[in-house]
Amino acid sequence: MLGATATYSHAEAIARQAFLALMWALSYPGRVRQLPPSRFDEDDFMLFGRALLDPETSYFCPDGSLAARLARHGAKSRSVASAAYVFLPRLDEAALALVSEVRLGTHALPDEGATLIVGCDLDAADAPEIVCSGPGIEGQVRVRIGSVPLAFWELRRQMIRYPLGFDAFFVHRGRVVGFPRTTQAEVA
């Protein structure tokens, strides 16, 4: 019969908690979630890599050094137009052009739309306020997301034709905010 409870290793624990942070970030969009502290020497992006990537999926990252580190999780490296997970440590004008190419899924398989993991500044008091509404939000919620060009929000609005679209996580210093494709985001 089954043996005793298997050990809940640190690797197991942080992978699970990182996933839970993503799950709740997506369930309650626009709310800032705390990520678990990792005893391994890894940043937020690597932590998400740990939670999401393995040889059965694919990723894209324009940043060479991060891409090389993410490769350790064994996922297939693909072009931005065909990767399931797109890691953008910085969302500048060049990265914006990449965003415009990500997978949006098909009507038969909208879940093939990409997941974006985007670096941002959640502490910038002068950052524009994004007003969010939609599933997971009781009425409205507001969140400031710095270091993301305003043009991103317009691009996102144009690209998402629900149920087609992409889902995004904004990451900064151990915190994450989710923007599933269902979230209506307006710049205040």
């Binding site: 290793s9 799950m23 997506l26 059965e56 599933p135 494709r181």
Partner: peptide, 28 residues
């Protein structure tokens, strides 16, 4: 022996990836 929570890490990761997409596309 068995993995923590029975499923191996590949199986759990696959389920977790799918769960995130399910939440992003309610009812799909």
């Amino acid at each position: 022996g068995y993995s923590y929570a029975f499923l191996d890490e590949f199986a759990k990761r696959e389920l977790r990836r799918r769960i995130l997409k399910a939440i992003a596309i309610p009812g799909y």
